[in-house]
Nucleic acid binder design. Structure first.
Length: 760
RNA sequence: GCCCAGAUGGCGGAAUUGGUAGACGCGCUGGUUUCAGGUACCAGUGGUGGCAACACCGUGGGGGUUCGAGUCCCUUUCUGGGCACCA
């Protein structure tokens, strides 16, 4: 995973840029905790051991990280600032605790993030997830919904699909919020709709079983209806949102109560259903079967009336609907709004409702506040305490960090005193979602040892934002959204200057598979770093990973593939060997080459250099193409060693090789460089600058087409004129055969490339 | 169902703005070196026909634009990824 990033960092540095390339450990979390439990070890010990192992292997891979900036999120030096940032969010009203319906795994006994629920089941133990009402900590990411959405337009360095995924995730929709009165109750039910133009087609009102009106209905309906409401609510109580919606048919019950349409004054039945989400909008919808597919399905299966109030602007109407007509059109049966277009009716109805004081325009998001508390041990303690007298209180800044206790001392940990009254208080026992730590770690790299602040503003001013971010696409709406939220908050505090987006350019890497499957211990198809280092060498591995596939594609590890790169490295070594110990000052490329073969050799070196640079500055990173150019160069050098005597050209090409390969195969590059007799590191050199004269060719192949088909390839001097090219073509025997004596009506000439003769 | 990305030899993949399709590598075939194997090196390797020169076909299928299409347009099939009752 880190090979591409390292190649990019090394290329950038050899192009003269000042590169900060750090590494750290996102070390808290459920998987580490469970693995530690399974091994009967303290998670802190388990994690420390694994960091040691992984650090050794990553160093073995030759990644050029600045290890002086290494961080681990499970260390107090880091999570202290995690707690401090939580308190900053708390003080600005962006962290709050509330009762909410959450995903609960009854087996693991913790809440789960939405992303940890797969098809309604716990991602680890496959237990069916339940819905529970618990008091949990949330971050108010929805306060930034509009900015998170609008600023996506400026993220031109991000893949379009990632921006689209974030747009869909945030899911802004504009509509109207208004209320239905409930007959016999001094209470109203608010609904949100994007299709207020269909208001007169509402034939029922549907609410989620959790809606607060449900309890009050029990007082006004018959005993039978009250019992039905109770049993329906009970049957759905523990069912997760996903279970209710995706895994169940639409169903519902009539409550026995009626709601009043605020405009038509029509009386419509109030239903409880499983398909209305408690957590979106107001937890209630107006049911318009004629113009909404879901309402149509529900009305059909429950015998509710279907009233069409929008008809296509042109074409026939009046036919009974076979499915919901969801497009815009022209209103009918809608009192004085009849005849209006949907668009105009939406404006007019919003105004009318606002005038009546019954509602108005509103915006809703599918984005929900981020649930960050976890009933888990291995995480950052949430720095809050609860006093019987004073209530909820933040831990004072000078009391940070709240250290994670060893597990046997949990009881002592929880007991504390209130900072206000000095009385007994209890600590919050939940820890934070690990996505909290990972939402700002890139800033800590700038100033990893600062014990007065998470980072000093001057460092952020100097380095931010992240110029190139490389990671998997699986974080499109998680880490990459959370980080944007945090960064905007920091920016608003004045802790960061410049852009309020953390990642300027984003690149998603493809997976590396083996035998068509993801490498994993359980599948037993993992390729060991140590074993690979031993057998093939790290440089061959790095070259292979960059070479198999363009970096954004899924690639397949093969043992044959890596041996091809071992062969390349051996050939590079042999091509350089004759010149060991003969350092000279840099040679001017054109002076080195005389014969066409020598010029081709020098040219190949510059073609490779141009490819490496182009792939880097364009941020396409298709180094597979660059390495193919290196193959071509080495092929020429191998041919030269048998046919061409040692010459300034072969020497020039050999001496260019360590620099050309340095970002991709750093170890052998350094070794060759030293053997040439250099006293300093090749990694401190500038990359080979492509020379226009070295790239130019003196002879070209003129492709001659007759009526668009290639009929001859004629060698010609570069810059051959159109008339000369025409003369050459007309002298070619195969061209004459295909012209068959016919007149050349016209011709198309592409200089130094192609001549197409069009014959009658 | 909706949205996005893709489809090129036996395999992974190349191919500025439409201008030599298959670079480079893997694999395979033959050869040189070797007692032998391996390594290394040389030659060949999209299909069909031909001794060859060369011809025809060929970038998932069908249609179109163009002197010329892997590349642009329409349509269709398949594959991968994402979202799936958000009112």
């Amino acid at each position: 995973n880190y090979t591409l990033g390292d190649a990019v960092a090394r290329m950038m540095r050899m192009l003269g840029r000042n590169v900060l390339h750090p590494m750290g450990w996102d070390a808290f979390g459920l998987p580490a905790e469970n693995a530690a439990i399974a091994h009967g070890i303290d998670p802190a010990v388990w994690t420390a051991e694994n960091i040691l192992k992984m650090r050794r292997q990553i160093r073995l891979m030759g990644a050029g990280y600045d290890w002086s900036r290494e961080i681990a999120t499970c260390e107090p030096e880091y999570y202290r600032w995690n707690q401090w940032l939580f308190l900053q969010l708390y003080k600005h009203g962006l962290a709050y605790k509330r009762d909410a319906a959450v995903n609960w795994c009854p087996h693991d006994k913790t809440v789960l993030a939405n992303e940890q629920v797969i098809d309604g089941r716990c991602w680890r133990c496959s237990t069916l997830v339940e819905r529970r009402f618990l008091s949990q900590w949330f971050l108010r990411i929805t306060a930034y919904a509009d900015r998170l959405l609008n600023d996506l337009a400026n993220l031109t360095g991000w893949p379009e699909r990632t921006r689209t995924m974030q747009r869909n995730w945030i899911g802004r929709s504009e509509g109207v919020q208004f209320a239905f009165a409930v007959e016999g109750l001094d209470d109203k039910v608010e609904v949100f709709t994007t299709r207020i133009d269909t208001l007169f087609g509402a034939t029922f009102l549907a609410v989620a079983p959790e809606h607060r009106v449900v309890a009050r209905l029990q007082q006004i309906v018959s005993r039978e209806h009250a019992a039905a409401i109770e049993s329906f609510t009970q049957s759905l109580k523990s069912k997760s949102e996903l279970e209710r919606t995706s895994l169940m048919e639409k169903h519902g019950i009539f409550t026995g109560a009626y709601a009043i349409n605020p405009l038509s004054r029509e009386r419509i039945p109030l239903w409880l259903t499983n398909y209305v989400l408690a957590e979106y909008g107001s937890g209630a919808v107006m049911g318009v079967p004629a113009h909404d597919e879901r309402d149509f399905d529900f009305a059909k299966s429950h015998g509710l009336p279907i009233v069409q109030v929008v008809v296509p602007s042109e074409g026939p109407s009046g036919e009974p609907l076979e499915s919901a007509f969801v497009e815009d059109g022209r209103l009918i049966s809608s009192e004085d709004f009849s005849g209006m277009s949907s668009a105009r009716a939406r404006e007019a109805l919003a105004e009318r409702l606002a005038f009546m004081g019954a509602g108005g325009k509103s915006v809703n998001y599918r984005l929900r506040d981020w649930l960050i508390s976890r009933q888990r041990y291995w995480g950052t303690p949430i720095p809050i305490l609860y006093c019987a007298a004073c209530g909820e209180a933040p831990v004072l800044d000078d009391q940070l960090p709240v250290l994670l206790p060893v597990r046997s001392h949990m009881a002592e940990f929880l007991e504390t005193t209130c900072p206000k009254c000095g009385g007994k208080a209890r600590r919050e026992s939940d820890t934070m979602d690990t996505f909290f730590e990972s939402s700002w770690y890139f800033l800590r790299y700038l100033d990893p040892h600062n014990d007065a602040a998470p980072w000093a503003a001057e460092h952020a001013r100097r380095w931010m934002n992240v110029d190139q971010y490389i990671g998997g696409a699986e974080h499109a709406v998680l880490h990459l959204l959370y980080s944007r939220f945090f960064y905007k908050f920091f920016h608003d505090r004045g802790w960061i200057a410049g852009a309020d987006e953390p990642f300027e350019n984003l690149f998603h890497q493809g997976l590396v598979l083996r035998d068509g499957e993801k490498m994993s211990k359980s599948r037993g198809n993992v390729v060991g770093i140590d074993q690979t280092a031993e057998r093939s060498g790290i440089d061959a591995m790095r070259l292979f990973l960059l070479y198999v596939t363009p970096p954004e594609e899924t690639s397949n590890w093969t043992d044959e593939g890596i041996s091809g790169r071992v062969r390349l490295l051996n050939r590079i070594w042999r091509a350089c060997e004759p010149y060991f110990g003969q350092t000279r000052s840099a040679t001017e490329p054109m002076a080195a080459a005389e014969s066409p073969a020598e010029k081709a050799l020098v040219r190949a070196a510059h073609v490779a250099a141009k490819s490496a640079i182009d792939e880097t500055v364009s941020r396409r990173f298709h180094y597979n193409a660059t390495i193919a150019k290196l193959d071509e160069l080495v092929n020429l050098m191998t041919a030269a060693s048998s046919g061409m005597p040692e010459s300034p050209a072969t020497r020039y090409a050999a001496e260019a090789l360590p620099i050309l390969i340095a970002p991709f195969a750093p170890h052998i590059a350094e070794e060759l460089w030293e053997r040439f007799g250099h006293a300093t590191s090749v990694h401190l050199e500038r990359y080979l600058e492509p020379d226009q004269r070295a790239l130019a060719t003196e002879e070209i192949t003129l492709v001659v087409q007759v009526n668009g088909k290639v009929r001859a390839r004629i060698p010609a001097p570069a810059g051959v004129s159109e008339s000369e090219a025409l003369a050459l073509a007309l002298h070619d025997s195969n061209v004459r055969v295909h012209l068959g004596g016919k007149e050349v009506r016209k011709h198309i000439y592409v200089p130094d490339k192609l001549l197409n003769l069009v014959a009658a």
